[in-house]
Computed example of a mutant assay.
Amino acid sequence: MSNLKDLNQTYSSMRLVALAAVGLAIVTMVVSGGLVFHAYGVVGQRVYVVGNGGSTAMALAESPEDHTEYEMRNLVRTFALNMFGHDQYTFKNNLNTALPLIDDMGGRLLYDGFKKGAVLDNYIKFGARTTASVDSIVLDTNTLPVKGRLYIRQKAFIGDRQSKSMPMGMSFELTNTHRSNFNPFGLMITRFNYIPYNPEASEKEKRILQAQKDRDDAQLQQAKVEAEEAQKEAAQ
């Protein structure tokens, strides 16, 4: 009985290692589609949380000069960090901050891609989270409406494990809108779409992922050895 118990424990260890790898792969695929699950209700009903630094002024910008390039970049950065980075606890609030900054068409484009991944369910199931970092924001302020491109990297985490960063490129235009508590910038992201972006992983990320792979390989090898020893003991 003791040998069988040891064997079961060994197989359980191997299964946990495998499940962790599968779980991370699932979350990584989910992240590729983006992150919304509850977003349909948010986009349709437009129920938002007032963000910090909001303005109650209802002034309609009359010319591009009413918006500084800093303000434009801040809008895009706020959108990107909230739309593509959260966990099960911050998911809804982050979307409530991001969605007022993009038009309905763009919001639904994101939603349709994200819904397929059941993101919130995976957050809860795997205890996962995602982070986003902005590589660059490129703006052409000589055009009207202003055209831009956004380049970010997104990572998924399960416990202390992380996925390879997923680069995403996006094109968009910025159009004038009313300032409000929900959108204090007086600008809105429109004509949103994904574009190719394939940068090299940083050396730091490569080292982290290699160390993680070495650790996983060692754990799997140890689990195999323990399984073989348990089998031999059970056969005696």
Rank of each mutant, 00 (worst) to 15 (best):
Gly51Asn: 10
Val47Leu: 04
Glu69Leu: 06
Asn94Trp: 08
Ala128Gly: 05
Tyr70Val: 13
Glu69Thr: 12
Ser55Gln: 12
Thr141Ile: 10
Gly113Gln: 11
Thr141Gln: 01
Gly106His: 13
Gly106Thr: 14
Thr56Ala: 10
Ala80His: 00
Asn52Glu: 15
Val146Cys: 09
His67Arg: 10
Ser165Arg: 15
Ile102Gln: 07
Ala59Val: 15
Asp121Leu: 08
Arg161Phe: 04
Phe157Ile: 02
Leu144Lys: 13
Val47Phe: 01
Thr68Lys: 03
Asp87Cys: 07
Met83Arg: 11
Asp87Ala: 05
Asn94Ile: 04
Pro64Thr: 03
Leu75Tyr: 01
Val146Lys: 06
Arg153Val: 14
Ile102Phe: 05
Glu69Ser: 06
Asn74Gly: 00
Tyr123Pro: 01
Arg46Thr: 09
Gly148Ser: 12
Asn142Ala: 09
Val119Tyr: 14
Leu75Phe: 02
Asn122Val: 08
Gly51Arg: 15
Val76Ser: 05
Gly85Asn: 04
Asn96His: 09
Val146Phe: 03
Gly148Lys: 12
Lys164Trp: 09
Gly51Gln: 14
Thr68Trp: 01
Asn96Leu: 06
Pro145His: 09
Glu69Gln: 09
Leu81Arg: 05
Phe126Asp: 05
Ala132Cys: 15
Arg149Asn: 12
Asn52His: 13
Thr90Ala: 08
Ser136Glu: 15
Arg153Gly: 05
Tyr123Ala: 00
Leu95Trp: 09
Tyr48Glu: 08
Glu69Cys: 02
Ala156Ile: 07
Ala132Leu: 13
Tyr89Met: 11
Ser165Pro: 15
Lys147Phe: 00
Pro100Met: 04
Lys155Trp: 09
Tyr70Phe: 14
Val47Lys: 06
Met83Val: 08
Asp103Gly: 09
Asn82Asp: 07
Phe114Met: 07
Asn82Val: 00
Ile158Asp: 03
Pro64Gly: 03
Asn96Lys: 13
Gly117Thr: 13
Lys92Asp: 13
Asn82Ile: 00
Ala132Met: 14
Phe91Trp: 14
Pro64Tyr: 01
Ala132Gln: 14
Asn142Cys: 00
Met83Trp: 03
Asn94Tyr: 11
Gly107Gln: 05
Tyr89Glu: 13
Val146Gly: 04
Asn142Met: 04
Asn74Pro: 00
Ala132His: 08
Leu99Asn: 05
